[in-house]
Write a protein that binds this DNA or RNA. Sequence first.
DNA 1: AGTTTGGTTCTTTTAATTCAGAACCAAAAG
DNA 2: CTTTTGGTTCTGAATTAAAAGAACCAAACT
Lengths: 161, 161
Amino acid sequence: MIELSTEQLEIIQKMSVFQVRAGMPPTEARILALLLVSDRTELTFDEIRETLSTSKSAVSTALNTLVLRNKVESITIPGDRKRYFKHQLKNWNANAKDGLEKLLSVNQLLKEILAVRTSETEDFNRDMRNVIAFIDFMQVELVQVFEKWNNLQNKENKENN
Amino acid sequence: MIELSTEQLEIIQKMSVFQVRAGMPPTEARILALLLVSDRTELTFDEIRETLSTSKSAVSTALNTLVLRNKVESITIPGDRKRYFKHQLKNWNANAKDGLEKLLSVNQLLKEILAVRTSETEDFNRDMRNVIAFIDFMQVELVQVFEKWNNLQNKENKENN
DNA sequence: AGTTTGGTTCTTTTAATTCAGAACCAAAAG
DNA sequence: CTTTTGGTTCTGAATTAAAAGAACCAAACT
């Protein structure tokens, strides 16, 4: 059982509300938030269960999907039977990229729609071509933004060697 | 009642599945998709209801939230009591920006968490500062990308005058 | 004034998520 | 080989979200 300050509890609350609004199931959200605020960054299954006072089944399924989605990593220490769970901060970047790309993939469908549309509605079709062009543009630009970030990181690393 | 080809029906299906996965309620998603594929771009309440064969109440609430969220505009033609509903393609850009900004607003919470974290876990905290820096970076870059797009649009408009 | 049209709002029903509790299971320990 | 540990999996049960149906209402038409 992890001891948490009032502040820590409040943040878990706020953070999980935020994530639930974004579509994440409550238990997953609370586990992620706990792993972000907890003083120890690697918690066992039972520590999580006790601290959040939920059932084993809920924790089990939530952790498994979190691991599957690369939000959490599970660590095993040799000679210790329990698994330890840790927030995958390192993957935030990549997850964000994947998420954005999924959002932008709607463009495929928009192009299909445009191909099927009557040519009678020229104004509407122009607007649609414009949306499509915008999303294509975003796709290219986002790749560049991610590259730019990676370059900045590499530079920083070199400087610190 | 709007007549739809098999192709149009299939696209409505695919598009609404896509949007529902992204968290949109089914009726809203199907209305939006219908307004994208339909040969007429402005449909009445009853045309939508009949074509999607759902209840008045479902259509009413869905349309109202879509209008509220600037996804659909409602047009009234003088001398015609019905309202006509049209997909707000023009707002796609702005809606995308709002959506992204909401996503990035998680950074506020991450900063709060970092402020409360123990200093014992230096590796973890560094990763967290890195995520925060990344989101801050994205925020700045996204604004620039949107500006760049607007500039491109303005240029094009001038050229076409 | 009465009726029809074009919806809205409230209540009920249905369906889908989410969680808990118990049974279960494999690996390790005794 | 029996027991304990560290979970997983399989039912329900409870909550929540979505849709239907019916009652309602205001504006326009007769």
